[in-house]
Nucleic acid binder design. Structure first.
Length: 877
RNA sequence: GGGAAUUUAGCUCAGUUGGUUCAGAGCAUCUGCCUUACAAGCAGAGGGUCGGGGGUUCGAAUCCCUCAAUUCCCA
């Protein structure tokens, strides 16, 4: 068999993904003989295509799930998608517009059938793309937040919470998006600094000839909705106006002048116009003073008839026109440039209009309590833990959750309005009818009921995700099915910190409310994938590489490792294609290591004399590395786990071990070494598998033919055995000697082919004797001898041992002396510091014995080294 | 305006209770090599006042104060 010198990933990828799928190796079912390990995917939006954020996030999940599977756990990764009300509705509306269909011209049912059609066509794209990445989800379990049973779950929960009195309907000032024509939560509003103007407007005082007061406002178009003018009670400038009335310019309506602490004496003129319908703070003032609420702005952001003037004009056009009218009327005192923070819709970028509206709310005060405690007490652990702070501050200051959205795509609110003006909340219209007739003693028909037009916030369905993917019916029946009993709570959740509150916190709330139990044990928060300029990678900026294209070029394994090389938990990932290239190179390195081993001819008649030490050393080193790797995994330091694996494979296995045991060209290898080496390689395949599933499965089967049961994906994860620390330390010292010899070759321009005779002056010759064969091979020595010194030879020092290499050519004695002097000087300086420390009584008295002992050893080592160096120097002179 | 986080090599980051894991890793850079597994490679080298300043301590990247810069959350 001959293998290409370069690993070609694409063939292996499709072959092994098909193999895993056909043999159902990703699938999981209840089995009480095994420990369950479950992850629910953060369901990607049906609108999306795979981006770099998904790649990072899902690679992490796949690493975790694959490792758990190999550890013998019953690993279940549930995939699915989210219906994403606002985003999807926007896409569908845009799609219809292109077809020349206006959303307003069709009814709800027609719209929804277009939306479903759209979802069927595009909704599964991301999941298909994840397969290319190697994601080992149990695809038979794929769920969608608007599946019939999951929808029922949402409705049941709404009804239940309403019955518990936790859901209520109320008038609130909401963030209205006049373009999307929907209310947004505070978190969906992005504040931007906008250059605007502060308009100073004069209001006449009623009953006086020419007395006026001046207010400053950024929104002159709302003066028609003014309900009062407020002054600060401590502001003597305006005390005389109290109790009088002011007249709104242009429309000549008179309004009271009131006192309120809220007014900032410093800001503007110190007089505040109060417009309860169009400003959150004014609304509060309005409640305090029982002011009339005059709403002059329509849903689409134009002025309505209550404005009396400029009816039908857009709010921004009206602003300009009002300013002009005021100027003409002589009531515009001045205009001033002013920057203010203006809220914009995250989805449509429209300027948010504070608007009073009737919405559905979930009371958050009580329901959040167990969710806060769980995270604060580390019942649910956040990685990295710094997010606990953020989590707490949000939960402490949480506001009631506005759960209604003025959209069609989503779960329609199960509230039914009756002809008598009342409403009933029930799962279906039929149930609602029964309740209604009973409650009000009426004899209504189904046709008399009118269901609420709005749908629920998308997060009101995804907060149930860790429960509903296993058992959507539990909310209605209260009876847990087997899946839910077995897989819940899930183990780990991998998601982005941006949705810590939107989603993670709410899942925790729902978990405690409905299961009385946390939804997951660990939350791993990834960073944002950014480009080199630090900008978030996004399709709209065009700064994101196409993930599938990357996979094509570098291989899925290369992309996976590339993403993980530089992504500690909670830190942003500054993406650079170089990382992915490094991943590809790593795959190639492993491929070639295998080519080397596979190419050896085995001769069972040879006894293994030389390679015992190498084998023992590597065994120890492997176990030490595995212990490290496990430790990193246990702390969710996935990047570090990968880096430790990378170094184990590249440095220890390839650069050191294989070079130690490699037979001469075209010479055979002994059977024992060969078998040990293959066994080592197999262990490496196992440890690498979660990171690089395709390459490792491919090589696993190249090593020898295996059946499905023995596929790598389901092979047992290796256990870290005891290791010989002393041997690892000794080897490190020998490696240092090898490096020094190589350094001499490199700096003197001597060919690596020229063998050296090495003489060692040491107190511990046994150390070198046990590694002699290795030393000879790796440093290319013709002999190793032990002795005090060698005349006219180059020398170097490792620890307190001295090494001599005689060269055929004459050495530059002066340069050598210079080098030795430099090193002596440095070591003396180092010794000085140590001695100083040790002669400080307070150090010796206060520092722990162990620390003092270490310092004393430093002193002894340094003194020995100086002596060795000085001897060498003396011999040169 | 209130709160939090971050600042260590050219880049991205480790550095746990203050003391040998203490100044580290990977990448990048430089030098020499197409040495029969791998140039997607091998061998070697250089590179940092641990953001600035002050303090506590026998001892500070680590603890405290202060200033600065960056980022995020809330208003």
């Amino acid at each position: 068999m001959s293998l290409s010198t370069k690993y070609n990933p694409s063939e292996a990828e499709s072959k092994w993904y098909d193999f895993w799928m056909e043999n159902k190796l990703f699938s999981s079912s209840v089995d009480y003989n095994k420990e369950p390990y479950s992850i629910v995917i953060p369901p990607p939006n049906v609108t999306g295509v795979l981006h770099m954020g998904h790649m990072l996030n899902n690679t992490l999940q796949d690493v975790l799930i694959r490792k758990a599977r190999m550890e013998g756990k019953n690993a279940c990764w549930v995939p699915g998608t989210d219906h994403a009300s606002i985003a999807t509705e926007a896409k569908v509306v845009a799609m219809l517009k292109e077809k020349g269909i206006d959303k307003k011209s069709i009814n709800r049912e027609e719209f929804l059938s277009y939306a479903w059609e759209w979802k069927e066509k595009y909704g599964g794209i991301i999941l298909e793309q994840l397969k290319k990445l190697g994601a080992s989800c149990d695809w038979d379990r794929t769920k969608f937040t608007m599946d019939a049973d999951l929808s029922e779950a949402v409705i049941s929960v709404f009804v239940d919470l309403h019955n518990k009195g936790k859901i209520y309907r109320g008038i609130r000032m909401v963030n209205w998006d006049p373009q999307g024509k929907t209310a947004l939560s505070d978190d969906e509003v992005i504040f931007k600094e906008i250059q605007s103007k502060l308009y100073y407007i004069n209001y006449k005082i009623e009953g006086s000839e020419d007395e006026t007061l001046t207010i400053a406002t950024t929104r002159p178009e709302t003066i028609m909705a003014d309900a009062a003018i407020c002054i600060n009670p401590n502001d003597s400038r305006f005390a005389h106006l109290k109790g009088k009335k002011a007249i709104i310019p242009l429309i000549n309506r008179s309004i009271p002048i009131l006192e309120d602490d809220y007014v900032d004496v410093e800001f503007g003129t110190g007089c505040l116009k109060v417009t309860p319908a169009h400003d959150v703070n004014d609304y509060e003032i309005g409640i305090r003073h029982k002011l009339e609420v005059i709403d002059i702005i329509a849903d689409d952001g134009t002025l309505n008839e209550k404005a009396q003037i400029l009816v039908g004009e857009d709010r921004f056009i009206a602003r300009k026109k009002i300013a002009k009218l005021l100027k003409e009327a002589g009531q515009l005192a001045k205009e001033e440039e002013y920057t203010s923070n203006v809220g914009h819709s995250e989805r449509t970028d429209a300027v948010i209009e504070p608007k009073l509206s009737l919405q559905w709310f979930l009371k958050m005060e009580d329901i959040t309590k167990p969710a806060l405690t769980a995270v604060m007490d580390d019942v649910i652990a956040l990685y990295p833990p710094k997010f606990k702070n953020m989590y707490r501050s949000w939960m402490d200051n949480v506001r009631d959750w506005c759960i209604s959205r003025q959209l069609w795509w989503g779960h329609q609110i199960p509230a039914f309005y009756l002809p008598n003006g009342e409403y009933v909340v029930a799962k279906t219209a039929e149930e609602a009818l029964v309740v209604a007739n009973e409650k009000y003693g009426e004899n209504y028909k189904l046709a008399d009921l009118k269901q609420d037009e709005d749908v629920l916030d998308t997060w009101f369905s995804s907060w149930l995700w860790p429960i509903s993917v296993f058992d959507p019916n539990v909310f209605a029946t209260g009876e847990k099915n087997e899946d839910l009993k077995y897989y819940y709570p899930t183990n780990d959740l991998v998601t982005a910190p941006e949705i810590l509150f939107f989603w993670v916190a709410r899942m925790i709330i729902a978990g405690y409310e409905y299961m009385g139990e946390k939804p997951f044990r660990n939350v791993y928060l990834t960073g944002i994938v950014r480009d080199k300029q630090g900008r978030k990678m996004s399709k709209s900026l065009g700064n994101s590489p196409d993930p599938l294209e990357l996979i094509k070029i570098y291989g899925a394994d290369g992309v996976r490792t590339g993403m993980l090389f530089s992504s500690p938990a909670g830190n942003d990932l500054p993406f650079d294609e170089k990382l992915v290239e490094q991943g590809r190179n790593f795959a190639n390195k492993i491929w070639n290591a295998f080519r080397l081993i596979k190419g050896w001819e085995v001769d069972s008649s040879i006894q293994n004399h030389q390679n015992q030490t190498a084998i023992l050393w590597y065994e120890s080193r492997f176990n030490q590395a595995l212990e490290e790797i496990e430790d990193h995994f246990s702390k969710f330091r996935i990047s570090d786990a990968l880096m430790s694996t990378y170094k184990l494979v590249w440095d220890d296995f390839c650069s050191w071990y294989l070079e130690m045991i490699k037979p001469e060209y075209q010479k055979p290898i002994d059977l024992e070494t060969y078998e040990k080496t293959l066994a080592f390689f197999e262990k490496i395949m196992k440890v690498l598998h979660p990171f690089m599933p395709f390459l490792t499965e491919e090589l696993w089967h190249q090593i020898k033919g295996r059946d499905v049961k023995n596929a790598l994906i389901v092979s047992p994860w290796p256990k870290a055995d005891e290791y010989n620390q002393g041997m690892i330390t000794d080897a490190a010292q020998v490696f240092e000697v090898v490096s020094q010899v190589r350094n001499i070759r490199a700096s003197k321009g001597i060919s690596p082919k020229e063998a050296f005779a090495l003489t060692i002056n040491t107190q511990s010759p046994d150390l070198y004797k046990s590694f002699e064969a290795i030393l000879t091979k790796l440093a290319n020595l013709e002999s190793v001898s032990y002795g005090d010194s060698v005349e006219g030879a180059l020398s170097f020092v490792v620890k307190s041992d001295e090494f001599f290499i005689p060269l055929n050519e004459s050495i530059d004695v002066e340069a050598e002396k210079e080098n030795l002097k430099k090193e002596i000087e440095y070591t003396k300086g180092f010794l000085n510091g140590v001695v100083k420390k040790l002669s400080n009584e307070r150090f010796v008295n206060n520092a722990p014995d162990q620390v003092v002992a270490i310092e004393k050893k430093k002193q002894a080592d340094a003194e020995a080294k100086i002596k060795t160096l000085e001897d060498s120097l003396a011999k040169l002179s």
